[in-house]
Simulated scan of single mutants.
Amino acid sequence: MNPVDVADYAEHAKATLAGDVLGYLDGGSGAEWTLRENTAAYRRIRLRPRVLVDVGSVDTAVDLLGSSLAAPLGVAPMAYHALVHPEAELATVKATGAAGALFVASMFASTGLVRMAQAATGPLWMQLYWLRDRGALLELVGRVEQAGYRALVLTVDAPKVARRARDLRSGFTLPPHVRAVNLDAELMAASHVAEAGVSAIERHSRERFDPTITWSDLGWLRERTRLPLVLKGILAGEDARLAAENGVDAVVVSNHGGRQLDGVPAAVDALAEVVDAVAGRLPVLVDGGVRRGTDVLKALALGAATVLVGRPVLWGLAHSGAAGAEHVLRLLREELEEAMALCGRPTTVEVDRSVLG
């Protein structure tokens, strides 16, 4: 059967991916309450349609930090696409460009940043974790700039990687053929060392991530790059205001897909607080739990400028490579167009909180 929605791609991934890989991709931290809430929260939000509106033409296009997108969609940063398909990020970035969406590459991509840039036909951002080795961090930033990426996305909700039971049970370790090729092999060595009952990913983060960074460190990075800086992992209005005050160019409301602190709100439930706090001073993006075009519409109504999609894109990649990843994004765009028409909102600028019931 050909997939007709994101759920079909999810079922295929569950049936075909290796157990430890599926656990790593689909799992969350703690009791996985926040993981479940990310999707459940969207189901609790109701839409309030208007009728007798001319929706003969529906325009989903948006502008984001100087880039035009065919729809307010992007691919969230996710490590190691090679875990699910041999063409890895090269396929995903091609699919994203074909869909007219934003691609946010992970610091731990399994494809070279220059190869991704050469394959991209749409805007390309790079996600970073703050490494203890600032020299390695800056060296990567320099290569990112030279390759033509348009923004840096600093993940700020992971001073350490949280306990993820599925990874602990499987002793998840990267296979030899899957590597973070944009970083020195010595920096990544711990992620390839297997130990029963230990997540190699979590152990690697303890060794390499700097848990001491504060708001004052952002200035150090801003002085050393010309690229816009986006903070990913914001859930509190106070932090959103601090981001604006510290010259950040955009924020992403995110709980890391339910993979960090368990018990925090669903990303969409924190969205309005962050949007209100920044009061239009910078764009607010959101990720986590998006499975349908109606979810995208609800996020836009709450003030999101663009919605980032994570696991569904990898499910599509696992199914049929670039074609599957593109189809996932195309499905979400088509479902968004339909939802906008049925709600009487023919353009994204007409989508506001009055859409919600």
Rank of each mutant, 00 (worst) to 15 (best):
M1C: 08
N2R: 15
Y9P: 06
D20M: 05
L22Q: 07
L22E: 12
L25C: 09
D26M: 14
D26A: 13
G28R: 09
W33P: 01
E37G: 13
N38M: 04
A41E: 04
Y42D: 00
R43F: 00
R44V: 07
I45K: 05
P49E: 10
P49T: 09
P49H: 12
V51W: 13
L52I: 15
D54E: 10
S57G: 12
V58Q: 08
D59G: 09
A61C: 12
A61Y: 02
A61R: 15
V62G: 02
A76V: 06
A76H: 00
P77L: 04
P77W: 04
H81E: 04
H81F: 13
A82V: 02
L83T: 06
E89K: 11
E89C: 11
K94Y: 00
K94R: 15
A101P: 06
V104P: 00
M107E: 13
A109N: 02
A109T: 11
V114Q: 12
M116I: 14
A119I: 07
T121Y: 12
G122M: 04
W125S: 04
W125V: 01
L128R: 03
L128S: 01
G148F: 06
G148Y: 03
T155F: 06
K160L: 14
K160E: 15
V161G: 07
A162Y: 07
A165I: 11
D167K: 09
S170Y: 11
T173H: 04
P175Q: 09
V178P: 05
V178H: 04
L183S: 08
A194P: 06
G197V: 10
V198N: 09
I201N: 13
R206Q: 15
E207D: 13
R208S: 13
I213V: 15
T214M: 07
S216D: 15
G219N: 13
W220L: 11
E223M: 07
T225K: 10
P228K: 04
V230T: 02
L231E: 08
A236P: 00
E238I: 04
D239F: 00
D239L: 03
A240K: 05
R241N: 02
R241Y: 05
E245F: 05
D249N: 15
D249F: 09
V251T: 03
V253H: 02
S254G: 10
N255I: 03
Q260F: 09
V264W: 05
A267T: 14
A272F: 03
E273R: 08
V274W: 02
V275H: 01
A277D: 01
V284M: 10
D287L: 02
D287S: 05
G289L: 10
R292N: 01
G293Y: 06
L297E: 03
A299S: 15
L300V: 01
L300I: 02
L302F: 06
L302H: 05
A304Q: 05
V307A: 01
R311N: 06
R311Q: 10
L314D: 00
H319G: 09
V328Y: 08
L329Y: 06
R333M: 08
E334N: 13
E335V: 07
E337Q: 15
A339F: 12
L342H: 11
L342Q: 14
